[in-house]
């Protein structure tokens, strides 16, 4: 009997190890496959030229990824600027001020928002955000714009990220014990001082990781952004111009343009760049968390 138990014990532990191993192996396999597949393009030109050239002429054998990388960063940063204050303020309100009834109403709403397929957000972007940017916002700044712009991408992306980040912030704020808030209040703090000094400070790592994960998710988001961002290869500082983020490049062209030599390999490199940047964002936020925890 005890031997049987020992065997079961041995195998059940083994399965857990295998499951863990698969998870650990996945990013490695993906990374290796992308590197191998994007190998041929390096015979054409060096990595620095691929990353920092802005000339994209696949038929002429020129692959410069800079416009795509910059577009992606621009859209992501815009979405962060739009969503971060909304998320923080909403999370504070929901955890510190809202009545129980409002909370029990809002939590499912946030979950539903997080679960809406991105194509729906894209359609909403086309129907609402694009006309708003093209017909109201652009004329206000005396710019001619179709509405399919970096700004539209940023807005749609921000709306998509809000429920995701908000959920994480709420979870984090909930962990602050009531006693801590009461302690600051009993020392004569106002409600806002109490939130600033107890809740926000106690949750600083939670806030950083929520924003980090949100940024990484936003950077890789493809479909909804692709639908509203215009998909024009150019570098422009003006958010009312069109852009062409990396994920859109891959999704738009893979399988269609592969008759062009090296295009296949170029798209693989684009995926690799995407993977690396998302990893860098994660690493950077890990580092920030480590720093705040040490302080």
């Amino acid at each position: 009997m005890s031997r049987r138990k020992a065997i079961i014990q041995y195998f059940s532990q083994g399965w857990m190890m295998i499951a863990l191993f698969v998870i650990l192996l996945l990013p490695l396999i993906i990374g290796i496959a992308l590197t191998c597949k994007s190998g041929p393009i390096f015979r054409l030109c060096g990595l620095d030229e691929l990353l920092f050239s802005s000339i994209w002429k696949p038929t002429g054998g020129q692959f410069g990824f800079l416009p795509f990388i910059l577009s992606s960063l621009y859209v992501t940063i815009l979405s962060f600027i739009f969503s971060a204050p909304v998320c923080i303020l909403a999370a504070i309100y929901l955890t510190q001020f809202a009545s129980k009834r409002l909370i029990s109403f809002m939590l499912p709403v946030i979950d539903i928002l997080a679960g809406i397929p991105s194509v729906v957000y894209g359609m909403w972007g086309i129907l609402i955000v694009v006309p708003f940017v093209g017909e109201s916002l652009a004329p206000f700044f005396n710019v001619n714009s179709s509405g399919y712009t970096i700004l539209s991408g940023g807005i749609v992306l921000a709306v998509m990220c809000i429920p995701y980040v908000l959920n994480m912030l709420i979870e984090s704020f909930k962990t602050v014990p009531n006693g801590l808030v009461e302690a600051t209040l009993s020392l004569g703090a106002t409600k806002w001082e109490s939130i600033k000094h107890s809740v926000l400070r106690k949750c600083s790592t939670g806030i950083i990781s929520a924003f980090g994960l949100g940024l990484a998710k936003a950077f890789g988001e493809t479909l909804a952004v692709m639908m509203v961002v215009g998909n024009v290869v150019q570098i422009s500082g003006n958010p009312l111009e069109a852009g062409y983020p990396l994920p859109a490049l891959i999704a738009n062209n893979y399988g269609e343009m592969l008759s062009i030599p090296m295009y296949d390999s170029a798209l693989m490199l684009a995926s690799l760049i995407l993977l690396v940047i998302v990893m860098l964002i994660n690493l950077f936020f890990r580092y920030l968390i480590y720093k705040t925890q040490k302080r």
């Binding site: 006693g179 009461e182 009993s186 004569g188 000094h197």
Partner: peptide, 20 residues
């Protein structure tokens, strides 16, 4: 209310030091 609260120090069941 802030002035009133500063007239009394509160000690709770568990210590809650501020994250400072």
């Amino acid at each position: 209310i802030y002035e009133i609260r500063q007239k009394m120090g509160l000690l709770s069941q568990k210590p809650y030091p501020l994250p400072l």
